[in-house]
Design a protein around this nucleic acid. Structure first.
Lengths: 145, 145
DNA sequence: CTGTGACCTGACGTATACGTCAAGCACGGT
DNA sequence: ACCGTGCTTGACGTATACGTCAGGTCACAG
């Protein structure tokens, strides 16, 4: 069951990460993150994460797990994978995160504007639906007597 | 420009609709409704409308225009084309609209529940983003001094 | 030697609501 | 006769975020 992990750990002479105890197989990673393995491979394909390899097997270090948390958070906030990819790439190539924070701020504001707009639209739709609801009830009440 | 319409009207001995003056070509209909011709053909394909034909050309009577208004309203309210199709079909085969009103009421409530749920989610997302916004500003302010 | 389990890489499928050709007919005008 | 216009019917393309095979490798258990 954990043979493969032991094999993995055993074959790591000095992996660049700090703690080898945090290394996970794709099964463990997906389990821990609550996403499917397909999702992990998909994000890798899109360049959002770059798990290490031991032979052909993917190895997820704490770094990748952290990035995944950020990615999932971004998703919850409604950013597209492409946008999230941009943030992460800025994050990587921007030591003190100035550009990154600025870009993030911009995106955040845009998204906020979208959301506030959506909220208004939803409120309008809700009241329109409520009036339709009333009318339906009246219609039914009339036919019912 | 309006030659074809005249031809159409001329060839209508006793079209079942009341007013021939309301008959529209697909171009006029799409113009009046603010949708593309493709959209009209698409809805027809899906069975939402059944414009008449003069030869092979589609003819939109007041009835179809009315249905289109309903369809567009349904869309604005967030119902899928399939759902709208169901409403319309009930509307057609249900003389005093009892079943129809009931079904509509159900769908309306479902949709309302969805929307209220969405609104909550949006509110949460908004506050989360607002906090990120603050943090980004602080980060930038620190780097700026 | 063969089975089993975990992993791998393509690559096509899904849902929605149309957009965007492509190819062709019928019409009146020049 | 030829052209431009409006209309017709397919049929494939688009975007998003994966799901779902198919087919194959690898290591170890029996």
């Amino acid at each position: 069951m954990s043979e493969q992990r032991e094999r993995i750990s055993g074959e790591l002479p000095g992996f660049e990460d700090m703690q080898q105890g945090d290394l996970k197989s794709i099964a463990e990673a997906s389990e821990a993150l609550g996403v499917t393995q397909r999702t992990l491979r998909f994000y890798e394909d899109k360049g959002l994460i770059q798990p290490g390899r031991v032979g052909s097997m993917r190895v997820y270090s704490r770094r990748e797990m952290g990035r995944m948390q950020l990615i999932l958070r971004g998703k919850r906030l409604g950013f597209s994978i492409r946008e999230i990819g941009e943030f992460l790439s800025l994050y990587d190539h921007d030591p003190d995160q100035v550009v990154q924070a600025q870009r993030m701020l911009d995106a955040t504001q845009e998204r906020l504007a979208e959301l506030r707009h959506q909220r208004e639209a939803i409120d309008q739709t809700i009241s329109e639906l409520e009036s339709i609801e009333k009318m339906s009830r009246q219609h039914l009440a009339r036919k019912d007597k």
